[in-house]
Computed example of a mutant assay.
Amino acid sequence: MTSPTLIRIGVMGAHSTGKSLLMRRIEMELRGQGVAVARTGNLGRRAALVPLPKMQHHTAASTTWIIATGIADEIAAAARLEEGPVQVVLADRACWDALAYYRAALEWRQQLAPRAERESVQQLASAHGYKYDLLLATVLDPDVPVEPKSERKPDYDPRYRTLVDRHTHEVLREENIRHVRITSDPASQDLAIEHALQLSMTEAPV
Rank of each mutant, 00 (worst) to 15 (best):
A98L: 06
E194N: 14
L43S: 12
Q87C: 06
L112H: 12
T59F: 09
H57N: 14
R39Y: 02
E27G: 07
A187G: 11
E119N: 05
R181E: 13
A79P: 00
V11A: 07
A192W: 02
V121T: 10
E83Q: 13
N176A: 14
N176E: 13
I177D: 05
A196F: 02
E175I: 07
R173F: 08
V11M: 04
H57I: 00
I177Y: 02
A68R: 10
E151R: 14
Q189L: 08
I9W: 00
G13Y: 04
Q189Y: 01
T162I: 00
T64L: 12
Q87P: 02
K131S: 15
K153S: 08
L140C: 01
Y102M: 04
G44H: 09
S16G: 03
A125C: 06
P145Y: 06
V35K: 04
A48E: 12
L49N: 10
D155G: 01
A72D: 14
A36R: 13
P158Y: 02
K149R: 15
Q110M: 10
E174T: 07
P4R: 14
T162M: 13
L163M: 08
N176I: 13
R31E: 15
P154N: 03
L21I: 02
A47C: 05
D157L: 05
L124M: 15
Y102V: 07
A127V: 15
A36W: 05
S62T: 05
G129E: 08
A48T: 01
L140P: 00
D143G: 14
D190F: 01
S3W: 08
V139D: 07
G34K: 05
A77T: 12
E107H: 13
T69I: 06
I9K: 03
A68D: 14
G129S: 09
R39N: 02
E107M: 12
S126I: 15
A127W: 11
A68Q: 07
G44I: 02
R46S: 11
V180F: 10
P158F: 05
L106H: 08
S20A: 08
D133F: 10
E175A: 12
E175S: 12
M23R: 01
T202N: 03
D143C: 07
P142F: 03
A100K: 05
R80P: 01
T202K: 05
Q122G: 05
E174Y: 01
H128A: 15
D155V: 00
Y132P: 03
R173I: 09
K149D: 15
R93F: 05
E107S: 11
E29I: 02
S184N: 11
V171W: 05
G18T: 03
E119Q: 13
A60D: 07
R24H: 13
R115I: 15
R115W: 07
D190G: 02
T69L: 07
P148E: 06
K19C: 07
A68G: 01
L22H: 08
S200H: 02
T183H: 13
S3L: 14
E175R: 14
L124F: 11
S150C: 04
H167W: 03
T69M: 10
E117K: 12
S3D: 15
V121E: 00
P51Q: 10
S3Y: 14
S20Q: 11
V144F: 06
L43M: 14
R109Q: 15
L136Q: 02
T2V: 15
R46L: 12
D190L: 10
R39M: 14
R25G: 08
I193N: 01
C95P: 11
P148D: 10
T59Y: 09
A187Y: 06
A104F: 03
A79D: 12
R161A: 08
D155L: 04
A94M: 11
A91W: 00
